[in-house]
C-alpha cells in the first residue's frame, strides 16, 4: 500500500534521513520505533511532503506521491494524526471534526462520521461546542485521533498519539488504535513507547540516527536486544 524506497531528507544543510526503505501492506499496523532524534517525525513529515524528499520515492497504491502537495496526499485517502496534537485551538470540537473531513461535501456523510466519532469518544460529544484549546490534554488527544479518522482514510498515519498522556489514558489510546485497525484501516504508527507500540502492531521498524537498523515482526522485535538497547541507552 505504502512503499518507501531510498528516501533521504533533512533540514537545511543537515540530512536527517538516509536511504530509508519501508513498506506498509493493506490492513497492517506498522510501528516505527526509535529514540528521540532518531528521525521518526522527520520520516512522517517527509511522507506527507511537509519536508521535501532529497532522493528516493514514496508510492501509495502504486502511485508516486513523492512530490505531491500535502493536501493532495491527504486527498488520496491518507489520514494524519500529527505529533503534538496540532488542533485548531480557536475552533470548537465540532469544527475540528468538520475540518477532519474538509474535502467531504456531503452533509449526510459528515453527520454519520461525526456520530461515529462521538460513538468512539463519548467525551467529545459532551464537549462538542467547547473550543478545543480549552480542553484537557487527554480530551485533546482523543479529538486529534477522531479528527484524523473523520475523512475515513484507508491509511492512517499517527505520530506519537500517546505522547504526554497519563498511563490510564495511554492504555485507552492503544485500545482505540486497535479498534481502528480492526475496522479495516491500515495504520502507520510512530511510537516512542516501544512496548505498547509493538503490542498492537504487526510489524515494526527500528530507526537510529536516520537509518533503519532493524525491521521485522513485532513479536520478534520485542525480544531483540537492539530494541532494548535503543530504548534504554537514553
Amino acid at each position: 500500500m505504502l512503499e518507501i524506497n531510498g528516501l533521504s531528507s533533512g533540514y537545511g544543510k543537515i540530512e536527517v534521513l538516509h536511504q530509508i526503505n519501508l513498506h506498509v501492506d493493506e490492513g497492517e499496523v506498522v510501528s516505527v520505533l526509535g529514540a528521540n532524534g532518531a528521525g521518526k517525525t522527520t520520516l512522517m513529515r517527509t511522507i506527507i511532503n511537509l519536508i521535501h524528499a532529497r532522493s528516493g520515492t514514496i508510492k501509495y497504491r502504486g502511485k508516486d506521491i513523492t512530490h505531491l502537495k500535502t493536501h493532495q496526499i491527504h486527498a488520496l485517502g491518507i489520514g494524519i494524526v500529527p505529533e503534538g496534537k496540532r488542533l485548531f485551538e480557536k475552533m470548537t470540537v465540532m469544527e475540528n471534526l468538520r475540518m477532519g473531513c474538509f474535502l467531504e461535501k456531503n452533509e449526510r456523510v459528515i453527520a454519520e462520521r461525526i456520530e461515529k466519532a462521538f460513538d468512539m469518544f463519548p467525551r467529545l460529544k459532551e464537549r462538542k461546542d467547547q473550543l478545543s484549546g480549552t480542553m484537557s490534554g487527554g480530551e485533546q488527544a482523543m479529538l486529534t485521533i477522531a479528527r484524523g479518522t473523520m475523512s475515513d482514510p484507508d491509511l492512517l498515519i499517527m505520530d506519537e498519539p500517546s505522547f504526554g498522556l497519563a498511563p490510564v489514558l495511554i492504555n485507552e489510546m492503544f485500545s482505540i488504535i486497535k479498534r481502528i485497525s480492526q475496522e479495516g484501516k491500515t495504520v502507520l504508527l510512530v511510537e516512542q513507547n516501544a512496548w505498547k507500540g509493538l503490542e498492537i502492531s504487526d510489524r515494526g521498524y527500528l530507526l537510529q540516527k536516520g537509518e533503519v537498523i532493524l525491521e521485522g515482526k513485532s513479536s520478534e522485535l520485542k525480544e531483540n536486544s537492539l530494541v532494548k538497547k535503543a530504548y534504554f541507552s537514553n
Binding site: 511537509l50 488542533l87 485551538e89
Partner: peptide
Amino acid sequence: QDKEASMMMG
C-alpha cells in the same frame, strides 16, 4: 491557526 495541520486535512 495551524498552517500544516490544515494542509493535512486537505
